[in-house]
Design a protein around this nucleic acid. Structure first.
Lengths: 221, 221
DNA sequence: TTCATGCTTCGATGGTAGCCGAAGCATTGG
DNA sequence: CCAATGCTTCGGCTACCATCGAAGCATGAA
């Protein structure tokens, strides 16, 4: 039955991550759901059998996307019912406040600060976002070069987009992914504004005091 | 989470039994689901907590009904997905012939007549459908103004689309949703072509004799 | 009051399914 | 070739939850 597929928290998180219409790899989905790749593989097989997602092989990756808009529509309907009764999903994002504030999503910044950063970029017309597509403006290129020493040619990649909207796990809004998102996160680390938590496997990103200030100066509200 | 509530087979059977809009007692639902009253009681408590059903005490009986048409609509959507992949439960769609012919889905017309209507609109180029997206043509606007006194400005809504394809529970094909679908259903009622069945909670839509004729004249094959 | 009916609560049980470690394929890159 | 990466399969463990028997309330009838 379809409903039981959506009913499991891990699968629900995967489906939510796919709600922006983009395809994600199995391991990305595993990370989103907070489970190991083995478990994710099992879940994805079930979702595929149930017709909720469709796989697409590409090299050694397996991209998954929602089958079509009907699936997305039903998921929205369910979310609507859940919101109405206050019975939001069981596992809505991480509990840990540090994780909610700033964490690594694949290789870029996520959490409250990640969402805030994209908000700021958009508001100041450094990027242009239409639906899920994000484009760097000329102004944006100048901004990156000036403040973060990031040039456009560092960002080109055969298969990966420069900008990409990534649905934030805890905030349920977009943050910036793509090669630009990764480059910015890397730059933050190089500038010693922030660093991944040394705990093995932790996704928390700790900002230094000066890093916090600089970040706020560039992307603050 | 709502989906996990619907996911359990016993609860799904109960909800299916309630899909015709009538209220059933706890023991009737237990029998429908093939479980003992104790188990049913536990399930019904959960469904009530999840906002899917509402109880009504009457003597020593406890009648349960679906909370509202939104719930029914989401269940239809799930059933539609399930039907599509062949992962159907017991029977496809409602048993009641009246319900199969014409019923309310959220706020628009569903069932045989609903599907027939969208078929007709598409065939006569009054709407243009590409995948799940439906668009009203200029011809279509003239048609609506002339025959149903519906003007485009009545249909605009900040967040809801004018036209939308909704997967039909019993027919497994699309019918027309969106503000236009709602407006048309409302107009049918105002013109006394059709009315929702007076039985409390029933989702059946009864067409009058003249309504049937007029509908057939506009949307007949 | 006493009994019968309808439903709920409690406690114990069992089956199912999610989960991860380890190992096995497949693809890419050197 | 070999090594690394991404994903899957297998096996065993564990936790959850649906299920039912028994007992407890409530309502209505005699």
């Amino acid at each position: 039955m379809v409903a039981s597929l959506v009913g499991d928290p891990a699968r629900a998180n995967m489906l939510t991550a796919l709600m922006n219409g983009r395809a994600l790899t199995a391991s990305e989905l595993a990370q989103e759901a907070g489970i190991t790749p083995q478990t994710a593989s099992s879940h994805l097989a079930k979702l595929e059998a149930g017709g909720l997602v469709e796989p697409e092989k590409q090299g050694r990756h397996r991209y998954y996307r929602l089958t079509d808009d009907d699936v997305a529509g039903v998921l929205e309907g369910l979310a609507g019912l859940a919101a109405r009764t206050g019975h939001m999903r069981v596992r809505t994002g991480p509990k840990d406040p540090a994780l909610r504030r700033a964490r690594i999503c694949y290789d870029h910044l996520a959490g409250d600060l990640g969402v805030q950063m994209l908000d700021s970029l958009r508001e100041r017309h450094l990027v242009r976002q239409r639906k899920q597509e994000i484009e760097l403006t000329a102004e944006g290129e100048r901004f990156l070069a000036k403040h973060l020493q990031i040039s456009p040619d560092m960002l080109s990649h055969p298969r990966r987009p420069v900008c990409k909207a990534c649905l934030d796990w805890s905030e349920r809004r977009h943050h910036l992914a793509g090669t630009l998102g990764a480059a910015m996160m890397q730059r933050f680390a190089e500038l010693k504004w922030a660093a991944r938590d040394p705990t093995p496997g932790s996704r928390v990103v700790n900002f230094t005091r000066t890093g916090e200030k600089q970040f706020a100066a560039l992307f603050g509200k």
